[in-house]
């Protein structure tokens, strides 16, 4: 595993500043994908920017009838949200069929959408 620096961003602007300082920096959310790939020497970031303290873990109903899901909402939190369960039950079901409870408690929505192919044979 490569050496890397670690820093924690307190607000979104700080996160953007930290990530732009280094072309090989990566955002760290739940770590369920990135950390595994680093251990396998597939991902080799020089710097990790921890964004888990940013205020992006909300699920809110929008006036136009949609729902906004924060990038840091954990998979299990999203699947268990009553609004999502009532209006988008397939989303809850899909999340609950993936991974294990322990992983779902850590994995984030943003990381889920941005993750690299999980299986390192590829």
């Amino acid at each position: 595993m490569n050496n890397f620096s670690y820093s924690r961003a307190d607000d979104p602007q700080a996160a953007l500043n930290l990530i732009s300082q280094n072309a090989h920096a990566k955002f760290l959310g739940g770590g369920t994908n990135l950390v595994d790939l680093m251990r396998e020497d597939i991902e080799r970031p020089d710097a990790l920017v921890d964004i888990t303290r940013l205020p992006l873990a909300g699920i809110e109903e929008l006036p136009d009838g949609g729902v906004r899901i924060g990038a840091l909402v954990r998979n299990s939190h999203l699947a268990g949200n009553q609004l999502v369960r009532e209006r988008y039950p397939v989303l809850s079901q899909a999340i609950l069929m993936g991974a294990s409870a322990q992983l779902r408690n850590m994995a984030t929505t943003g990381g889920n959408l941005l993750q690299r192919t999980r299986c390192y044979y590829f």
Partner: peptide
Amino acid sequence: SAVGMISEFQSGLPSAVTEDMSDP
């Protein structure tokens, strides 16, 4: 796992085999 699972169940979290997702 059993202790964690029971506490998740008590907090109302559904699972992949829960038939009606909307039922709390």
